[in-house]
Amino acid sequence: MTDHRAVNLLRSMKRIRLVEETIAERYAEWKMRCPTHLCTGQETVGAAVGQVLRPDDFALSTHRSHGHYLGKGGDLKRMLAEIYLKGTGCSGGKGGSMHLIDREAGFKGSTAIVGGTIPLAVGLGLSIALKGSDQISCVFFGDGAVEEGVFYESVSFAALKQLPVLFVCENNFYSVYTPVAKRQPAGRAIHALAAAMGVNARHGDGNDPLAVLDQVEAAVAEIRSGGGPRFLEFETYRWREHCGPNYDNHIGYRTEAEFLAWKERDPVLRLEAELLARGAVTGEQVAAMTDTINEEIAAAFLFAEQSPFPAPEELHAQVFKQ
């Protein structure tokens, strides 16, 4: 792996982390008036996939999509303006945090119904096959989505037609407050479900950034060369509450010890340490990288705050495409 790619991955992961943590810090101002699902702690997968995919590849996501959107190249200002529900937001203020889109970056949309975008990614894969291009369609989802019927319907059809689809499951072990042990039988792996449906499936540690990048690169290369769909499952962990800016380890659905064990395995710090150790970056360079990102974030928040809300007449606009 070239250092250049690893440093870009670090930059992307840091950027996602700092955006999420700034949202958490400022959420109490009550200006971001929508449910907001932060991905602090699970930045790796969105950053790595986004880095490997081309801008003309498609990606779709879930309620927890900030990292996927930013990783794929989505515009930060327009994302924050959307979370502020402003007319300049990426969805014109009609979507909010759970409905992000950036067509120029190939980010085709995120929605809030669990599993809801999985068949859309397969449909985009079908459109690619019909048009004969070498694009890839990627969808991010969590461990809860594999409990939805539509997951099976979608993966099965992608296998049947050998469509160029990359399924990416971030297994963070919780569906809101419900642990995976209460939802899925012991000893059954998510990636094994996909394999049983006829899709080449692999899994890995979602908090090991360079390993994730390798796995994504391999899968994307295989799909691009006509190998059909691929399924990747990465285990990772969200630090903050399911929805909102706080920590919630005290309320009783998970333990502080479990959280601390995952925090010890902070993927951003891990990658930074690895790159420092092998001399791919210097401490000064990392500090400069952080400063640059923070300046960008400050400017984006200012843009979002200063943007106007949608005009009242927007209520009736865009119900139908005219």
Binding site: K108, G123, L126, S127, I128, L130, E153, S154, S156, F157
Partner: peptide, 25 residues
């Protein structure tokens, strides 16, 4: 390629139609 039978998967296949339509189909 343009006219095909489908799995008995109404919800998923509706999503497939939606996804394809997002890319000009």
């Amino acid at each position: 390629a343009r006219v095909f039978d489908m799995p008995t998967a109404e919800n998923g296949m509706t999503g497939v139609a939606i996804g394809a339509s997002l890319n000009g189909i």
